[in-house]
C-alpha cells in the first residue's frame, strides 16, 4: 500500500537529511548580534510553559493590567475591526440591547443553541427560534436573520472571540447567518492570546472539541484591489454583547 511505503520513505528521507544539523537561525549579516544565551528554545523547554507564556507577553502587543483596560482595548479593537461591542451593566441592559438589535435589524427568525445566555436571549426576543442542537437543515439555518451564540472567551489583545463547536452550537451557526451575535460574561474577557491558549488547555485537556478557533471581526475580504469588504462568505455583522 502506498500509504505505508510513502510514510516510511518520507520519514527515512527526513532522518537522513537531518543527519547534518542546521545552524541556529538569526545569524544574518547586518543584524545586531543574535540573542545572547540563554537561548529562547532552552528557556521554553527547560522552564516550561509558564516561562514561555511570560516571554511571549513581553513581545506581543501590550494589553494593560486591569479588566477595565482589557475592556477598553477590546472596544478599541472592535472599532478597528468593525465589530459591534456592547458592554452591558447588567442583565436588564442586555435585554434592552437585544430588543434594540431586534428592532434595528428587523429580525424575525434567529438561529441559536441551548445555553444559559442564549436561552435568555430567546426569551427576551420572543422571535421564531431555530435551535441547532439536535441537528439542523443548513438551508433553514441560512434563512435565519442572526445566529446567536455563547463563546469560550473574548481576547482583548486582538478583539477576538474564542469559541468552539461545543461552546457555540456547532461549527456552522456562527458562520452561516448574516449576523453573528455573541453573548459573553464579563469574566470571560481574557487579556491576551497566551491566556486564550492556556484556557483551552485547562478547559478541555485532551478532550478538546473538533473545532476551536478565534473569530476576529465580521467576515472580510480585500481580494479586490485590497479594498476592505465585509461579509465575504460569513457574517456581514458581528455583535459582541458582554454582561
Amino acid at each position: 500500500m502506498p500509504t505505508t511505503s510513502s510514510r516510511e520513505t518520507i520519514l527515512s528521507a527526513i532522518r537522513r537529511a537531518l543527519a547534518v544539523p542546521a545552524p541556529k537561525p538569526g545569524h544574518h549579516a547586518g543584524e545586531s548580534e543574535p540573542q545572547q544565551e540563554p537561548q529562547f528554545q532552552n528557556t521554553f523547554s527547560i522552564l516550561g510553559q509558564e516561562a514561555a507564556t511570560s516571554q511571549k507577553r513581553t513581545w506581543l502587543p501590550p494589553v494593560g493590567e486591569s479588566w477595565d483596560a482589557w475592556a477598553d482595548l477590546f472596544a478599541a479593537n472592535s472599532l478597528d475591526l468593525k465589530t459591534q461591542w456592547i458592554l452591558c451593566a447588567d442583565e436588564a441592559e442586555l435585554k434592552t440591547q437585544l430588543q434594540r438589535l431586534r428592532a434595528e435589524n428587523g429580525w424575525t427568525k434567529i438561529g441559536l443553541h441551548r445555553g444559559e445566555l442564549t436561552d435568555l436571549a430567546a426569551e427576551t426576543l420572543g422571535l421564531e427560534n431555530f435551535y441547532v442542537d439536535d441537528g439542523y437543515d443548513a438551508h433553514q439555518l441560512e434563512k435565519c436573520d442572526a445566529g446567536i451564540t455563547q463563546c469560550d472567551a473574548l481576547v482583548a489583545q486582538t478583539g477576538s472571540v474564542l469559541s468552539t463547536n461545543q461552546s457555540a452550537g456547532g461549527r456552522v451557526l456562527s458562520i452561516l447567518p448574516p449576523h453573528h451575535v455573541v453573548i459573553a460574561r464579563r469574566e470571560q474577557l481574557l487579556p491576551d492570546l497566551p491566556a486564550a491558549f492556556e484556557l483551552m488547555q485547562e478547559k478541555y485537556g485532551d478532550n478538546y472539541p473538533s473545532l476551536m478557533g478565534f473569530i476576529t471581526g465580521p467576515s472580510r475580504t480585500g481580494d479586490i484591489e485590497r479594498i476592505l469588504v465585509l461579509g465575504a462568505h460569513g457574517p456581514k455583522k458581528l455583535t459582541v454583547l458582554c454582561v
Partner: peptide, 24 residues
C-alpha cells in the same frame, strides 16, 4: 501577511465530527 492584528478566522481542527457534536 496582511497587516492585521489577527486574521478573521483562525480555526483549529482536531478531527471529524466527534460523538455528541452537533455538526462537522
Amino acid at each position: 501577511g496582511a497587516g492585521q492584528a489577527l486574521t478573521g478566522y483562525n480555526t483549529l481542527l482536531g478531527g471529524p465530527k466527534q460523538p455528541g457534536e452537533i455538526d462537522g
